[in-house]
């Protein structure tokens, strides 16, 4: 029983070990620098979407103007 127990412990200890073998940006994540990247991309996305929103409002204004024109 003891052998099986130690074998299982060994197995559970090595499984995460196998997973770590493929190199990922783990250091960058542990340092928290990934949040810098996330916030930069979110800023760009937010800026572009805000720009699209202003163009959308401009389109609404133009539509109103066109409707007034055709009523005249």
């Amino acid at each position: 029983m003891k052998e099986i127990g130690s074998l299982l412990t060994l197995l559970f200890l090595t499984i995460p070990g196998f997973a770590q073998e493929v190199e990922m940006a783990d250091t960058m994540r542990s340092e928290g620098k990934i949040y810098v990247v996330v916030s930069i991309i979110l800023t760009i996305l937010g800026g572009l979407i805000f720009y699209l929103y202003t163009i959308d409002r401009k389109a609404t204004r133009l539509e109103k103007k066109a409707d007034e024109f055709s009523k005249k």
Binding site: I49, L52, I55, L62
Partner: peptide, 23 residues
């Protein structure tokens, strides 16, 4: 959805322009 949004703005501006030009 973002693509539909961008396309819809483009289409709406063109439609309004056409209306003004026609008038």
């Amino acid at each position: 959805l973002l693509g539909v949004w961008i396309a819809s703005v483009r289409i709406r501006i063109q439609t309004a322009e056409e209306k003004i030009l026609d008038h």
